[in-house]
């Protein structure tokens, strides 16, 4: 086995270990150890396969398991899309409905025929753009505050249900080994992420006098998106942890 072949093998193992969620310093230490030992092994005529086996993926997977990580990829982009999208859609429509969405949605040809298009929790609400600034009429929904909060709550529950359902379907499609654990953790992490994200957005808005300028709205959306994706990543990270194997307790 030539030296470049060893480098290729080590690079492959490094990439796989990172994909399995092993931290960068740990991967570096593992690769350093393998590098030193493989140098000696190949120098004395042994093959790389005789040390790490013919299946590098299986080798990396066993090391990942030894470090308490299920040998499955992170899949954060996939999860962010499939679970973030339903949350965003539900949140958007809820916002439109609660903020006087009846008239707005009523203009749409199909939605206008649906009963909920007549929901409007404020009187004579209008949304218009003037010189790039979104302006809204005064929100007069003091009588329906609990109804508005109820719609928001219902939307949050619907968004969470759709998000976890979509994540479950996507992970089932790619035959992910940690599907069930991921969905369970999403049910915990997503609401926390949403609360943190919206709190951050409200806090930011308060520093801008709750301005509806596009730039302010954009920052609020970015804050919420970051919190949601972070919560998805956290859920996946927790789902990929596994307990030590039982082989330590008995023959």
């Amino acid at each position: 086995m030539t030296k470049p072949a060893m480098e290729v093998a080590l690079a492959d193992i490094r990439k796989r270990l990172r994909a399995f969620g092993i931290s960068r310093p740990t991967v570096r230490a593992i690769i350093e150890e393998l590098h030193t030992d493989l140098l000696e092994a190949t120098g004395s005529g042994a093959s790389i396969d005789s040390i790490i086996g013919p299946d590098r993926r299986a080798f990396a997977a066993r090391i990942a398991e030894a470090h308490g990580r299920a040998p499955v990829p992170g899949r954060i982009p996939l999860l962010a899309v499939v679970s973030g999208l339903p949350v965003a859609i539900v949140a958007f429509f809820t916002y439109i409905v609660v903020m006087g969405g009846g008239p707005v949605l009523g203009r749409l040809p199909v939605v206008g025929r649906l009963p909920y298009s007549h929901l409007a929790f404020e009187r004579q609400s209008t949304v218009y753009v003037d010189d790039g600034v979104w302006t809204m009429s005064h929100v007069d929904n003091s009588n329906e505050v609990w109804l508005v909060l109820g719609v928001y709550g219902l939307a949050a529950a619907l968004g969470l249900a759709l998000a976890t359902f979509a994540a479950d379907a996507a992970l089932r499609l790619v035959r992910d080994d940690r599907r069930v654990a991921t969905v369970k953790w999403l049910l915990v992490a997503l609401p926390i992420g949403a609360i943190v994200g919206f709190s951050a957005a409200i806090l930011f808005a308060s520093t801008r006098d709750f301005s509806t300028r596009p730039r302010v709205i954009q920052v609020e959306c970015i804050l919420i998106t970051i919190a949601i994706i972070a919560s998805i990543a956290l859920a996946r990270e927790r789902a990929r942890r596994i307990p030590p194997p039982p082989s330590l307790s008995s023959l």
Binding site: L34, L38, I51, P54, F59, I63, E65, A66, L248
Partner: peptide
């Protein structure tokens, strides 16, 4: 160290076991 352990196992007649298993087991 790792490779030395592999060789000891080979000398003991456990060479087949050593292939690909020693480093994960050491980590575990």
């Amino acid at each position: 160290y790792g490779y030395e352990i592999v060789r000891r196992l080979e000398i003991a007649g456990l060479g087949d076991v050593a292939t690909g298993s020693v480093y994960p087991a050491l980590a575990r």
